[in-house]
């Protein structure tokens, strides 16, 4: 065996003459570099990144956007949404307490004016019902963790949320269609006019007395355009989130669409609270418009003077015949109930 080892030693000695690379005691393990790269702590050329099975986001080693999205949801969205929605609710409550219900100052004339067609009401209520469903289910997804789950337990609360989420998923696309129809249906009368500025300056009559308004006042017009614009953003982003497995959008994109969706939805919900309040219990004679399609002529005169003027000026027998103005003094059951 010695014979075997001798040439080995000789070989070593011979090889020893070759120049050697100077040691670098500060050299770090390549693993460190890799993990730094993975965490994006330092710039690093990751070259081609591949994984099996191929495709999708399996090749993404670290989802860097995840933390930012978490911060957004937990530190911004949830607290801000809570404040905004709560703030609006409180504001409405205060407004109610301070101002009380807004009466028809001239009292009911008994004369009914046709304000919305049956189709318009159908569209409105479709959108409204879907909106409420979506809003409630959305709110549960946003805040449910803090009340539904502790209150109902994870099993039942989870199941409830699961079904609400499914309702949200399935009614979303329908809502989108309904919203589109509503935008078209209600477009007439919602274009801004100069006198709307006056309405705005007078804060709809709260400051400085009577504020002029057409078929829709500036507030309603604002709501319309908000619902149309932001609403469509929410609808489109919602559709993106609705079909995750179609693979058109990656995780980062979906997180961004989620941001749009949630911000838009919170904005609409906040404003919708005002709309719902105004449309229901805030003022006498408002709800019946959308409930029955007719409003009291005095209510129209007081709140939509320009519109009232326009239709009364042009009022002709044919209008009566077509039912635009209904002379019958008998209030409908719904109206009565409202008035009561």
């Amino acid at each position: 065996m010695l014979g075997l080892l001798l040439p080995f030693a000789a070989a070593l000695a011979a090889a020893g003459d070759e120049p050697r690379v100077a040691p670098d005691p500060t050299a770090v393990s390549p693993g460190v570099e890799l993990w730094d790269a993975v965490r994006e702590r330092q710039p690093f050329d990751a070259g081609q990144v591949r994984t099996q099975p191929p495709g999708g986001e399996r090749g993404v080693l670290i989802n860097v956007g995840g933390e930012a999205w978490r911060q957004f949801r937990m530190q911004e969205l949830i607290p801000v949404a809570a404040r905004v929605l709560g703030g609006v609710a409180i504001a409405i409550l205060l407004f109610r307490l301070l101002r009380g219900k807004i009466p028809i100052r001239a009292g009911r004339s008994g004369e009914k004016i046709r304000r919305f067609s049956g189709f318009q009401r159908l569209v409105h209520w479709t959108v409204a019902v879907l909106f409420v469903l979506l809003a409630l289910s959305g709110l549960v997804m946003l805040f449910g963790r803090y009340f539904i789950i502790p209150w109902l337990g994870s099993e039942f609360g989870g199941a409830l949320t699961y079904w609400l989420k499914r309702i949200h998923d399935f009614s979303g696309p329908v809502f989108g269609v309904a919203l589109l129809v509503m935008i078209i249906t209600f477009m007439k009368g919602n274009f801004p006019a100069l006198y709307d500025l006056k309405w705005v300056f007078k804060a709809g009559g709260m400051l400085g007395g009577h504020a002029p308004a057409g078929r829709y006042n500036a507030g309603e017009k604002g709501w319309y355009w908000l619902a149309a614009g932001v609403g469509m953003v929410v609808v489109v982003s919602g559709l993106v989130l609705d079909f995750p497995n179609l693979g058109g959008f990656d995780r980062d994109a979906m997180a961004w669409y989620h941001r749009l969706h949630s911000i838009g939805a919170v904005a609409i919900m906040a404003v919708s609270m005002g709309h719902i309040y105004m449309g229901t219990v805030a003022m006498e004679g408002a709800f019946e418009c959308m409930a029955t399609g007719y409003c009291d002529s005095n209510w129209a005169r007081e709140h939509h003077d320009r519109w009232y003027a326009a239709i009364t000026d042009e009022k002709s027998p044919s209008d009566t015949a077509t039912g635009l103005v209904e002379p019958a003094p008998e209030p409908s059951a719904a109206t009565r109930q409202q008035a009561g």
Partner: peptide, 12 residues
Amino acid sequence: RNGWEDKEFIRQ
């Protein structure tokens, strides 16, 4: 060329 072969092993 460098004589790195194991000469004894080869011989035997």
